[in-house]
Simulated assay, not measured.
Amino acid sequence: MTPKQCLEYAADYKAQAATAGISSKRVALLTNISRTYTALASQLSMLADDMKADRRESSARF
């Protein structure tokens, strides 16, 4: 899963949470899922950056 995919899921769940007529419990659940996907996107992006930095450091040693 990529950060972009996570953000797409987050947007979808956020839109679902904005649907009229759903219970407040469901709004809370959908909003929390959206936030979770947003956080995962951030973490995946940070991981990718860290892995790139490691590769640069490793290649600089040789």
Rank of each mutant, 00 (worst) to 15 (best):
A39L: 04
A18N: 05
Y13V: 00
F62Q: 08
A28T: 10
A28C: 01
L30N: 03
M46L: 12
E57L: 12
L30C: 00
I33N: 07
R61D: 02
D50I: 07
P3D: 06
Q5Y: 03
S59K: 15
S24D: 06
R56Y: 14
R26D: 08
D50Q: 09
I22Y: 02
S59E: 15
F62E: 08
Q43W: 04
Y37D: 03
R56A: 15
R55A: 10
A60S: 15
A17S: 14
A28P: 00
A17G: 11
A48L: 08
R26S: 06
A39Q: 13
G21C: 07
E57D: 09
T2K: 12
A39V: 02
M1D: 09
E8T: 15
A48S: 14
M46D: 13
D54A: 09
E57P: 03
S24P: 00
I22P: 00
K25P: 00
E57W: 07
M1H: 15
T2W: 09
S24F: 06
E8V: 15
A15P: 04
T19R: 15
A10S: 13
Y13L: 00
M46Y: 08
M46V: 13
A10W: 15
F62R: 12
P3I: 11
A11V: 05
K52I: 09
C6A: 04
D50H: 11
E57S: 12
C6H: 06
S24R: 07
K14G: 06
K52T: 13
A41V: 14
T19V: 05
I33L: 02
A17W: 11
G21Q: 10
Q5T: 02
A41I: 09
S23A: 04
A18Y: 01
Y9N: 07
N32V: 00
R55L: 07
K25M: 05
T2V: 10
A15H: 06
S42G: 15
A10V: 05
A10T: 10
I33D: 02
K52S: 07
I33Y: 09
D49F: 11
R56S: 14
R35I: 00
L44N: 06
K4V: 15
T31N: 10
T38H: 08
